[in-house]
Design a protein around this nucleic acid. Structure first.
Length: 215
DNA sequence: CTCTTGATCTTCT
DNA sequence: GAAGATCAAGAGC
């Protein structure tokens, strides 16, 4: 019986070129982001991260949704000063800050601005491109749109835990690659917070189907 | 589609 | 002791 390549997702007649293994080819990566990328305003970094690729142990995808937090912002974990939990936010830029959310999930941030400014970008959603099989196994799901469409979901898919906090973002197991070309950015109100709810500091890739919630 | 609720536990007051 | 940068499932429309 000749039922070839009858995959359930992303089928496209023009893609029937190479006999491919289980996964579609990942798009080409942009140049690696250095730690210094984060040494500027969190509101410049946040939109520039949209379209970049985040990989942890080679697994990840395109960043399609982030939120910006600054120590002058009542919604930020750093607003009331340093504590054992948020200490890494007060350190140098270009490091990860992972915290436990609602006692159940992990969420990952990238620390920005000069040391002591205590600002960070929360990574909220990815379009999965690398290591789909690993992500599906960790999430126990098939639907590619559900793998990384939320801050807790993407940490589970990428295997991110507290062990990944305070890691440099330009060294293994973490890798970041700049986006190739331009991206249309949309903004909106941040999700799930109860303080400073009117600040439009949520950034997304326009028309992406992989965001946690429509803009 | 929207709305509600339970799960679960660390953090800080 | 209460709140919280969430998620998934279920009810209702």
């Amino acid at each position: 019986m000749t039922i070839f390549n009858r995959s359930t997702n992303d089928s496209h007649p023009k893609m029937a070129r190479t006999p491919k293994p289980a996964e579609a080819a990942a798009p080409p990566l942009g140049k690696p982001l250095k730690r210094s990328f984060f040494n500027r305003s969190v509101h410049e970094v946040a939109p520039d991260l949209i379209g970049a690729t985040l990989l942890v142990g080679g697994v990840g995808g395109l960043i399609v949704e982030v939120e910006a937090y600054h120590h002058t912002d009542p919604a930020a974990h750093s607003f009331n000063g340093p504590t054992p939990r948020n200490l890494v936010m007060f350190g140098p830029p270009g490091f990860s800050y992972v915290y436990r959310s609602y006692g159940i999930h992990w969420c990952v941030n990238f620390v920005c601005e000069k040391e002591g400014s205590a600002s960070a970008v929360l990574i909220r959603a990815l379009e999965p491109t690398h290591g789909l099989a690993a992500m599906r196994r960790r999430r126990g799901l098939e639907d590619v749109r559900a793998l990384c469409s939320g801050p807790g979901k993407l940490c589970e898919a990428l295997g991110i835990t507290i062990a990944h906090s305070a890691l440099p973002l330009d060294a293994p197991p973490v890798a970041l690659h700049a986006r190739t070309g331009k991206a249309e950015i949309v903004t909106g109100l941040r999700i799930g917070i109860t303080k400073a709810v009117d600040l439009p500091w949520r950034y997304g890739l326009k028309a992406s189907r992989f965001v946690s919630k429509r803009f």
